[in-house]
Design a protein around this nucleic acid. Structure first.
Lengths: 286, 286
DNA sequence: CTTGACTCTACCATGATAGGAGACTGTAGA
DNA sequence: TCTACAGTCTCCTATCATGGTAGAGTCAAG
């Protein structure tokens, strides 16, 4: 019978941990002195502790190890758990590799721009959304877009179907152009309301990986945000894989029919907040 | 001014987390109602929150992010932190890949042996140790080894230099043989005592990666443990890179001069506990 | 019997995140 | 104006493996 200190030395498991394993029932001492509560371990327990360490090194939690050990469960189940674990680790490896690429991209970015970038690009998953929209070809800065938003908000307001979420613009052109922009404006709705020749109701599709950047200020200075966003996509080796979106988190307020809390609105152009979103994907080059 | 719920929706950061960021000073609301304690966020804060998310995605802790954001610290330092982070992630990737290989090895093992292996091999780092030892060429099972242990224990006992740690045998042959085994027996000492023609004092070297297996029972059945250990090394694609060691964690007691607590000794051969250790390394085959 | 090394329990801490309880506040509809 | 419900507040708890501390008790060697 070893006292906990000796057993700890042999097994290279800290005393703390042995006590912890006792507490959670993973490895109880062979014997406990009822008067002093001293734990006494037998040499027989080394193999079990060894198995625990082996499984721990494979990445199993102590709870899972308890399952794996306690029930003398069939080999097939153990194989199953191992395969699950394998998949899990493979996923983590991929995640960490992605993270590594992100960090490398950011380093490249700093070197290229010779300083810390002003905009922070975030990758996120975007959920689908039901919207009422109008799609048209317009000239840039012609005010058409503002007019279209007023129109669609008024339309949605008639059905009382406005969902409390920001409106957005979707740019369907694959390339950039100053004029004749194929643009869709959309406002979220909470019910499927009737469509018209001009107004359609559709689900704006989910995007698994969306590169997003938040721009604060008027729409003139938004070009910088675009530059940053596309620069980021280039330095991080992503490819654009869908239509660009502009989400108006905070925008001009002196309009009619807007069913949004005041918080979403402002009267100062300098206070506008816009999120630029571009679906991206990684070309597998390995 | 957005209430926390709206701000949470825009930023896709949970309310809980926003409150947490407030608490740790990472992102304080632009305004807090002194009567109700309601938090009010301004749109200006979205870029900062975005930067926080971006850095979090890179794997920085919230504390590190606070450092990165608060002090407007020079770009060079940020680059330094990023490089550190890159190294850290690279290490983790390697670790996870190793783990993955371990899991795969274990799966192979189960398939090969058609069941859960009886012995559990553990990889560990072994620290160096000062020992008194005798090296000789002996015949197996000749009792020479036992005699040598008695001799060395008696020698060490004379100097009162016995360290409370198990004795071990080191097999210096590269291959297996039944006879003429080049063997070194060693007992840990806590001081450098004089050597003799027969007894040497040396440091048993540290081993970075030691494949270890614990065998319980007499020395006849130890062959199974060896089979398992070498089987494991094969299925996990390791290569033996040093001399094999047998560490006697619990062994025959009716000898003289042993300065060890009784716990290390037993009179029943069935109670013997022996750890087999083989230094291994991975051939880089990528 | 003393002393020093060992062990006991009980508590606190990590770090990012989630859940709940119980109280209060804001807003929309009756 | 009242009510109901949704939103928000603070405070507490938990996760998971691990380490630390304090204060009390125990063991073994001299």
């Amino acid at each position: 019978m070893f006292k906990i200190g000796d057993f700890s030395k042999f097994s290279r498991v800290s005393i703390k941990m042995l006590r912890h394993y006792d507490e959670i029932g993973l490895l109880k001492p062979a014997q406990v002195d009822p008067f002093t509560n001293y734990r006494y371990y037998s040499a027989d327990q080394l193999p079990r502790l060894n198995r625990i360490i082996a499984l721990k090194d494979l990445g199993f939690s102590l709870e899972q190890i308890a399952t794996l050990l306690d029930d003398a469960l069939p080999a097939s189940e153990i194989r199953g758990m191992l395969k699950l674990k394998r998949a899990e680790i493979a996923t983590r490896v991929r995640e960490e590799q992605t993270r590594l690429e992100q960090v490398e991209g950011r380093l490249r970015q700093i070197e290229l721009e010779d300083g810390v970038p002003v905009y922070d690009v975030v990758l996120r998953k975007i959920a689908p959304q039901i919207v009422a929209g109008i799609r048209a070809v317009v000239k840039a800065d012609s005010g058409d877009i503002t007019a279209m938003f007023e129109e669609i908000e008024a339309y949605v307001a008639r059905y009382n179907a406005r969902e409390t979420a920001p409106p957005l613009t979707i740019y369907h052109d694959a390339d950039y152009r100053d004029d004749d922009i194929d643009v869709e404006i959309a406002v979220p709705v909470n019910a499927v309301i009737p469509a018209t020749e001009r107004v359609h109701i559709r689900e704006v599709e989910a995007v698994a990986t969306m590169a997003c950047v938040v721009h604060k200020g008027d729409y003139i200075s938004i070009a910088e945000a675009y530059t940053s966003l596309f620069g980021w996509i280039a330095t991080h080796d992503y490819t654009i894989s869908g239509a660009l979106r502009e989400v108006y988190l905070r925008f001009g307020a002196d309009n009619v029919g807007y069913r949004l809390p005041d918080a979403y609105l402002t009267t100062t152009a300098g206070e506008f907040v816009t999120e630029l979103q571009v679906p991206v994907s990684k070309e597998e080059s390995k």
